[in-house]
Lab assay of single mutants.
Amino acid sequence: MTFKLIINGKTLKGETTTEAVDAATAEKVLKQYANDNGIDGEWTYDDATKTFTVTE
């Protein structure tokens, strides 16, 4: 399955996707991606669209 991350950061905005077997696995990968890029904020997840959003 494809999961999307929408980034609403102070210095970085955009989106990325990852392939994962489930939402929990995708969340780990996407949170690591955000952490690697210095993004720390509030996370939400929409199961209907398989989209995570992080807002700083």
Results as ranks from 00 to 15, higher is better:
Asp47Lys: 10
Tyr33Gln: 03
Asn35Val: 14
Gly9Lys: 07
Gln32Thr: 09
Thr49Gly: 05
Ala34Val: 07
Ile39Ala: 04
Asn8Leu: 11
Gly14Leu: 15
Asp36Gln: 12
Thr2Asn: 07
Ile39Gly: 02
Thr44Ser: 11
Ile39Pro: 01
Ile39Arg: 02
Lys4Asn: 05
Leu12Asn: 13
Lys31His: 08
Phe3Gly: 01
Lys13Met: 14
Phe52Cys: 01
Thr2Gln: 09
Glu19Gln: 14
Leu30Ile: 03
Thr25Glu: 14
Lys4Ile: 09
Ala34Ser: 05
Tyr33Leu: 06
Gly9Val: 15
Ile39Asp: 01
Thr16Ile: 14
Glu56Gly: 05
Ala23Tyr: 15
Lys28Met: 15
Met1Ile: 15
Gly14Asp: 12
Val21Gly: 11
Gly41Arg: 01
Asp36His: 09
Gly38Thr: 04
Asn8Gly: 05
Thr16Tyr: 15
Val54Lys: 01
Asp22Ile: 03
Asp40Gly: 09
Ala48Cys: 04
Glu15Gly: 06
Phe3Tyr: 13
Gln32Ile: 09
Ile7Arg: 02
Gly14Gln: 12
Gln32Phe: 05
Asp47Phe: 09
Thr17Val: 08
Asp40Trp: 10
Glu15Leu: 03
Tyr33Cys: 04
Thr44Gly: 07
Asp22Gln: 03
Gly14Pro: 13
Thr18Phe: 10
Phe52Ala: 00
Ala23Asn: 05
Leu30Ala: 02
Glu15Trp: 11
Gly41Cys: 02
Thr11Gly: 08
Thr49Ser: 12
Lys4Gly: 04
Gly38His: 11
Asn35Arg: 13
Thr17Trp: 10
Gln32Pro: 02
Trp43Ser: 00
Ala34Leu: 07
Lys4Pro: 01
Thr44Ile: 11
Asp36Tyr: 08
Trp43Gln: 00
Ile6Val: 14
Lys13Val: 12
Lys50Thr: 05
Lys4Asp: 02
Leu5Glu: 01
Asn37Leu: 14
Ile39Trp: 10
Ala20Asn: 04
Leu5Ile: 03
Val29Met: 10
Leu12Ala: 07
Gly41Val: 02
Asp40Val: 15
Leu12Glu: 10
Thr16Phe: 13
Gly9Asp: 03
Ala26Cys: 02
Asn8Pro: 03
Ile7Gly: 02
Leu30Met: 06
Glu27Pro: 00
Glu27Cys: 06
Val54Gly: 00
Tyr33Ser: 02
Phe52Met: 01
Ala48Gly: 10
Lys31Ser: 05
Ile7His: 05
Thr2Ala: 08
Glu56Gln: 06
Leu5Pro: 01
Thr2Tyr: 10
Lys4Met: 09
Leu5Lys: 00
Phe52Trp: 07
Lys13Thr: 12
Thr55Ala: 06
